[in-house]
Design a protein around this nucleic acid. Structure first.
Lengths: 341, 341
DNA sequence: GCGGGATGCATAATCGATTTAGCAGTACGA
DNA sequence: TCGTACTGCTAAATCGATTATGCATCCCGC
């Protein structure tokens, strides 16, 4: 079923059919003719051939989502999901390519999708970071998702500054002032696997809010890997060293480890000790009690990427709020409730 | 950079340029001319416009991956990853659409991708099941991935019969004959969330292998939901009822719960009790000791889907082997090692 | 009765490839 | 010398849309 078929059935030229079906005609075509064409299109089940459209108009209604990882964690998947929902709403479609961080595959991916005349490219990274990307024509619309690149200022990132503040406030609002920090050490600067702008921002937010609320870290434990084992190790050390009543963990896996250490010490969350963390990983809802965590808003970010490409929004850095997900690992500090025995 | 540019630079017609770059010419074009054209293409960085190609040839080198879920579990993501790897190797690209199981969105997705002249459609389901799909032209190449549909015999499924046998053999090979079954009850038929062909096959394989190895279920606990809580409940009941030394769990989340019950009973895995499960979920590698599980081969299945579409393989049901992932939750039965005190 | 403008539609070019049919030129055998 | 068979390439149609231009026709005012 082509446009020509529709035109023939309606007894008009395909030019008119095109004008009518694209509603570009204004008043220049009689309403009877318009009706005839629309009816014909409906009866024949006409659907435009997008390859032909794209050839002529240079619009493919297709966006490329090029990511270093799609399946390692659910984070990347959430960004994809957000992007796909927005695409669906806007009549777009997503070509998804995984590069596994391989530079050669990245370059290949860029070309492959450009060959398909995509309307824009979303370059996503699983963990917010600066990425190297191959050169390509300036005409191409590119947006960095959870990633940064000097040549491409259009980027969507989590608002880590606000996120850091929010996490601290979860604890201070419950009365906590003496807090154990798990995963980072301000003195040595150790924390996280690589120097990352977003981590800096998060730590900055944490520091600001701690000062604002007159709270202090009575213990700090840094580690490069942010896995349950390290969380366990650091939390145990802090519990042994002193009377910690609140942990601020830099991600949910660290918090998972901290939970173990807390249980081992015979303490109860949140009555004896409160825990707050970052990311909203799957495990945070599996844990008992559920972990209160400041979420990385990946779905919202993915959605925004598609929408901004579609709208041709200005190339600027966009920060997406990190909401706090309260699940029950924080309780008001009640003096003397702990270790009364 | 179009083909015409290349042709102009090489001083030939675009027809010749096309023939040469597609290597269709055979001996009909002089090698000097061929060289000139290839050089021109290289120097100009010529890349064919796939929209134009697709318009003319009806091949878009694009495959649609329509799935009910892409981001809920890592299973779906693994299928996508396998599909993408194969696509990358074959010079194809994947359009990914998520329908969330919504019939209307499924229909819309089918049309959207058909409009884009995809070479084939992969219809994937997160959990192996029969799916309803909208009608579309017979000319479209469709393959069911982890799903079944009467109208479309071309399907790729895990070999659950073999998988069931394999799981049992993991235990019987270690000397276990008296086994506790977690998640299913042969007498009541209760187990799993919905009647599923693949579950039937798995249970059939389990039954066969149990008989072949002269083993028996000394306890069975069925449940519709296969979540950690149920695993915990069922395992605890079985441990209290009698001297179970081996658990066969129907998925890793049930096993996760069983681990808790076992720890609570003061028993050690695998010395006191062996555990085998299905799926190879993430948690199976997080657990201590690592969980021995019969994996759902999702990545291999995704890969196969793209390859078979590409090759135009016959429309048949393809079963993919479920490999056993040994991690240390199974140990040889040593009589008297348990509860000696 | 005629120029001018609006109305309603068609013609044809175009996007960038593929592919069939066929045109020159040469070689060769009879 | 002529017919035939290759060889090496080009012209032009084609895929299915969009869009600039143009051609009738009619209405209107003068």
């Amino acid at each position: 079923m082509t446009l020509a078929d529709v035109a023939r059935m309606a007894g008009v030229s395909s030019a008119s059919a095109s004008l009518i079906l694209n509603r570009r005609a204004g008043t220049r075509i009689s309403s009877e003719t318009q009706e005839r064409v629309r009816t014909a299109a409906r009866e024949l089940g006409y659907r435009p051939n997008i390859a032909a459209q794209s050839l002529r108009t240079d619009k493919s209604h297709t966006v490329a989502f090029v990511s270093d990882f799609v399946s390692t964690t659910r984070f990347a998947a959430r960004m994809i999901r957000g992007a796909m929902k927005a695409a669906d709403e806007l009549g777009q479609v997503l070509i998804v390519v995984e590069t596994e961080g391989d530079v050669e595959r990245e370059a290949r991916a860029m070309h492959t999708v450009l060959d398909r005349q995509v309307d824009g490219i979303i370059l996503a990274a699983e963990r917010a970071r600066a990425v190297d990307i191959p050169d390509f024509p300036d005409s191409v619309n590119v947006i960095m998702l959870n990633a940064m690149n000097d040549a491409h200022p259009h980027a969507i990132l989590p608002d880590e500054l606000q996120g850091g503040r929010t996490a601290v406030r979860e604890l201070t609002a419950a009365g906590h002032r003496d807090i154990g920090l798990v995963g980072y050490d301000f003195e040595s600067g150790i924390g996280g696997s690589s120097p990352s702008v977003t981590l800096e921002r998060r730590m900055h937010g944490i520091r600001e809010q701690m000062a604002a609320d007159r709270a202090r870290f009575i213990a700090q434990g840094g580690s490069r890997r942010w896995e349950p084992e390290e969380g366990y190790r650091i939390a145990r050390a802090q519990l042994r060293a002193g009377p910690v009543r609140a942990f601020l963990c830099l991600n949910d896996r660290l918090a998972f480890g901290a939970y173990q250490a807390i249980a081992e010490a015979g303490l109860t969350i949140p009555d004896d000790i409160s825990v707050v963390s970052f990311d909203d990983d799957d495990i945070s809802s599996y844990l008992r009690p559920g972990l209160t965590t400041v979420a990385l808003p990946h779905e919202a970010m993915g959605r925004l990427a598609v929408e901004r490409l579609y709208r041709g929004s200005p190339a600027e850095e966009v920060l997406v709020a990190m909401p706090s997900i309260r699940r029950g690992s924080v309780a008001p500090l009640s003096v003397g409730a702990r270790r009364t025995g």
